[in-house]
């Protein structure tokens, strides 16, 4: 296995936190929340767009600005991943809603989704390489809704 997969793994081992845990008052949480089907379809489309942005400058638009070692990850991909390498979502597994905030006209959700990924491209030895892995991604997205 080359550095290709290693970069992939570093890339998506996203941490939800960068510091210490936070105070979550007991009794204020009413429901764990569910993801409606239409939103799940939107999430799957977004995950495919994220995978397509891997190995392009657009990837930086998708990563949390507060992600520890964000710049180091982008630099490692730039240094180590060959131009023909592609990332693909093979399947989307369980989705958990971690947080949901509703404001007039806007829903912001934080979800944790388990995906199976495949990276394919030239290896260091000049041959082709195709590897799979399972990763958990933490996704925050804001959606405008009609009022």
């Amino acid at each position: 296995m080359s550095r290709l997969l290693l970069v992939l793994l570093i890339g998506f081992a996203t941490a939800l936190h960068g510091g210490q845990r936070s105070q979550e008052p007991i009794g204020e949480q009413e429901d764990m929340g569910a993801l409606p089907t239409a939103d799940r379809q939107q999430l799957e489309g977004w995950l495919r767009a994220l995978a397509a942005s891997w190995n392009t400058p657009r990837l930086s638009d998708y990563l949390d600005p507060d992600l520890p070692d964000r710049q180091r990850l982008l630099g490692a991909i730039e240094d180590q991943v060959p131009p023909d390498a592609e990332l693909r979502i093979l399947s989307v597994g369980p989705v958990r809603v971690l947080d949901e905030e509703r404001a007039p006209g806007v829903i912001t959700r934080v979800v944790r989704v388990s995906v199976r990924l495949q990276v394919q491209g030239s290896a260091d030895n000049g041959g082709l390489e195709r590897r799979e892995s399972r990763q958990d991604l933490v996704v925050r997205w804001t959606r405008r809704v009609p009022q």
Binding site: L16, H17, G19, Q20, R21
Partner: peptide, 9 residues
């Protein structure tokens, strides 16, 4: 059950 165990970095 299944959970993310997080205290600090």
């Amino acid at each position: 059950g299944d959970q993310q165990a997080y205290f600090s970095r």
